[in-house]
């Protein structure tokens, strides 16, 4: 078995992992950190990413919740809710929430397409490394799932106030999140460099 020398990201120990990868997971012998897991084929990921992006389009204008208090109606989309915060003068909160909750996941998906489509067409991984670096930086800041849970919490909070209707936007958001999540799980960054590793 040809092995490749690498180091654990979390404890720094030098480990060898097989050069030709089978479908196993590889973990650090000292700290149990994940060293490598096999991702899905790029074409699957691209399909899923495109699906997720398509789902995001209706999200921008479908209301997530309708609230009806004594005949007064109020409904808002995900963007509108944050827009109100912006209008109240809390620009920073609106900006960060907008970025983390909505835009970063979308940007991540777009970057992923920018990474995977060229690779699929035989480009060298170095060409897309900038996109990958950005993707990597953002991955910690994508908070779509937090936003999703917060919608549910808000629903419970608003429950007593009046009649609450869940809008289509909410379901869209759930589907978007699921596809987004699958996309990110399927994608294993190590796969970008896999062919390259042979040269080493």
């Amino acid at each position: 078995m040809i092995v490749k020398e690498t180091a654990c990201k979390e404890c720094g120990v030098i480990v060898n992992i097989p050069k030709k990868i089978n479908f196993s997971q590889y973990r650090c012998p000292r700290c149990n950190a994940l060293l490598y897991r096999r991702g899905q084929p790029f074409s699957y990921i691209i399909t899923m990413a495109v699906t997720a992006l398509l789902l995001f389009v209706p999200l921008t204008f479908l209301p997530i919740l309708d609230l009806d208090i004594m005949g007064l109606q109020s409904s808002s989309t995900l963007f509108e809710a944050l827009w109100m915060v912006y209008k109240d003068g809390f620009y920073f909160i609106a900006f960060v929430a907008m970025m983390t909750g909505l835009l970063i996941p979308v940007i991540m998906l777009i970057l992923l397409l920018f990474i995977l489509v060229p690779l699929k067409h035989g480009y060298r991984p170095e060409k897309v490394s900038l996109y990958y670096r950005l993707y990597e930086k953002m991955s910690d800041w994508g908070m779509a799932e937090v936003y999703l849970i917060s919608i549910i919490v808000s629903m419970v909070k608003l429950h007593g106030m009046g009649t609450l209707h869940i809008g289509l936007g909410f379901y869209m958001f759930i589907f978007f999140f699921i596809t987004f999540y699958i996309t990110t799980v399927w994608f294993n960054p190590d796969d970008i460099w896999l062919d390259d590793a042979v040269d080493n």
């Binding site: 208090i69 004594m70 909070k157 608003l158 007593g160 106030m161 009046g162």
Partner: peptide, 12 residues
């Protein structure tokens, strides 16, 4: 009307 941080309840 119960008003609180977490919501307004109006019943009349």
């Amino acid at each position: 009307m119960d008003v609180s941080l977490m919501g307004v309840k109006v019943r009349t």
